[in-house]
Design a protein around this nucleic acid. Structure first.
Lengths: 118, 118
DNA sequence: TCCTTGTACTATTTGTTATAGTACAATTAA
DNA sequence: TTAATTGTACTATAACAAATAGTACAAGGA
């Protein structure tokens, strides 16, 4: 399932799994209803413990991004538009916070745009 | 020394101290040559262990942001322009990364600017 | 029947963060 | 001189989250 994990990162593995799957949903790599790797398979693929994947899947299920069906497998939820917009919203908010930081240090909006090349 | 620590944050206390002092230097609240709180004083003020403050100060000294003089105290370095620019650079880089994420999801630069109101 | 699925536990290990405590040498102030 | 303060340098321990290890169960599918 092409998930990239940075084992040196301070971000916990289970959270990286969440973020990667969220990204694939936002990108349209994973689509509503689609079955994703089983907990055991993904754990094997990433070389990590099944419990760690389970933790990530639990979080994704709580966010209504995936649905887990006992004895069947795990699937992307039927409606992920809410999750997509929430992701965009959270990134926008993070950027705004950082722009404010730059302004506090004394950079103008024009300077910032110039440095960002946008 | 008006440092704000979030004890619930996942960011370690010692790192929050580093970030706060870096910010005050960038903002011009703390200026070159100026003496800052002693390790013991700041620890007391924040209600944390002196070893934790010492760790933060060690990192700041490594970054050439402060200078510690045995038996005298700790001071803002004489030249912090490099540190200031490094901070701006790192924030710019973080923003760029997040903008790329939004573009990957399918947002245009115009849409992004609109959402950011810049 | 056998394999796979998600689920649900407990116990243990590991690594980082933070605290506790002590000690030393050098400077400063009383 | 004396007492207090400074950064420095240790060791030991506590606390916590992350991750692993291992086991077991019930249900669906081939």
């Amino acid at each position: 399932m092409n998930i990239n994990i940075d084992y040196q990162s301070r971000v916990p593995i289970y959270e990286q799994v969440v973020l990667e799957i969220e990204k694939m949903v936002a990108l349209g790599v994973l689509n509503p209803g689609e079955q994703i790797s089983s907990i055991r398979d993904l754990a094997c693929e990433l070389g990590i413990n099944p419990n760690t994947v389970k933790k990530a899947y639990d979080i994704l299920e709580n966010k209504n991004i995936i649905v887990s069906k006992s004895t069947k497998g795990s699937f992307i939820a039927d409606d992920v538009t809410g999750a997509k917009e929430a992701k965009v919203e959270s990134i926008i908010k993070e950027i705004k916070t950082k722009i404010e930081e730059l302004e506090n240090i004394g950079m103008s909006k024009e300077e910032i745009k110039k440095r960002l090349k946008i």
